[in-house]
Simulated assay, not measured.
Amino acid sequence: MDVIRLLGIRDSALSVGEVLSAVGDHAAGGTALFIGTVRDQDHGRAVVGLSYSAHPSAESELRRVAEKIAADFPATALAAVHRVGDLRLGDIAVIVAVATPHRGEAFAASRRLIDGIKSEIPIWKNQLFADGSAEWVGACD
């Protein structure tokens, strides 16, 4: 069975339940979950919303990053989904989960997965501030 159970770049709301269900595995002793949400400030500036855009290659790049994590860690299951489009405060922007035989491996693998998504996937964030200004960010937070 493939360790990579769920991957996606979506323009609709993300589901924590769907991601957790995807990585459920009786061989796993630990499952680490990370949920990234839209916060109300960045560097002391009030954020009122944001928009994510993705390059057409984003999903294949997401698979490449996930395959690297699956090869480097004893994962029994892995999932990652990222949202694109307009998001409001509190909306879920990204969810990653990794199941492994032991908790330490799960934490380390999920950290590498989210960090890989932030640094290697062509997804851009346009933050909208309360003062009416906006800022493009080259990787997702």
Rank of each mutant, 00 (worst) to 15 (best):
residue 39 R to Y: 10
residue 98 V to K: 04
residue 52 Y to K: 06
residue 82 H to Q: 12
residue 43 H to I: 00
residue 137 V to E: 04
residue 94 V to L: 13
residue 65 V to R: 02
residue 119 S to L: 13
residue 38 V to P: 01
residue 60 S to F: 01
residue 104 G to L: 12
residue 101 P to M: 08
residue 138 G to E: 14
residue 75 A to M: 05
residue 110 S to I: 00
residue 72 D to H: 10
residue 129 F to L: 07
residue 50 L to I: 09
residue 108 A to C: 06
residue 85 G to M: 10
residue 95 I to M: 11
residue 139 A to I: 02
residue 123 I to M: 11
residue 54 A to D: 08
residue 106 A to M: 04
residue 95 I to R: 03
residue 55 H to M: 08
residue 57 S to C: 10
residue 33 L to N: 06
residue 125 K to L: 05
residue 114 I to S: 10
residue 112 R to K: 14
residue 137 V to G: 12
residue 92 I to P: 01
residue 134 A to G: 13
residue 105 E to H: 13
residue 99 A to I: 05
residue 93 A to R: 05
residue 122 P to K: 05
residue 60 S to K: 14
residue 62 L to E: 03
residue 101 P to F: 07
residue 77 A to I: 09
residue 92 I to E: 12
residue 109 A to Y: 02
residue 75 A to T: 13
residue 30 G to K: 08
residue 85 G to C: 10
residue 131 D to L: 03
residue 52 Y to L: 14
residue 105 E to L: 06
residue 77 A to R: 01
residue 133 S to L: 01
residue 94 V to I: 15
residue 123 I to W: 03
residue 53 S to N: 07
residue 40 D to I: 02
residue 125 K to P: 08
residue 124 W to D: 02
residue 35 I to C: 13
residue 49 G to S: 14
residue 67 E to H: 07
residue 110 S to H: 02
residue 105 E to G: 12
residue 47 V to P: 01
residue 81 V to D: 09
residue 103 R to W: 10
residue 82 H to I: 09
residue 36 G to N: 09
residue 72 D to W: 00
residue 127 Q to K: 04
residue 84 V to K: 02
residue 127 Q to C: 09
residue 122 P to I: 04
residue 33 L to E: 12
residue 109 A to W: 01
residue 80 A to Y: 03
residue 105 E to N: 11
residue 127 Q to V: 10
residue 105 E to C: 08
residue 137 V to N: 11
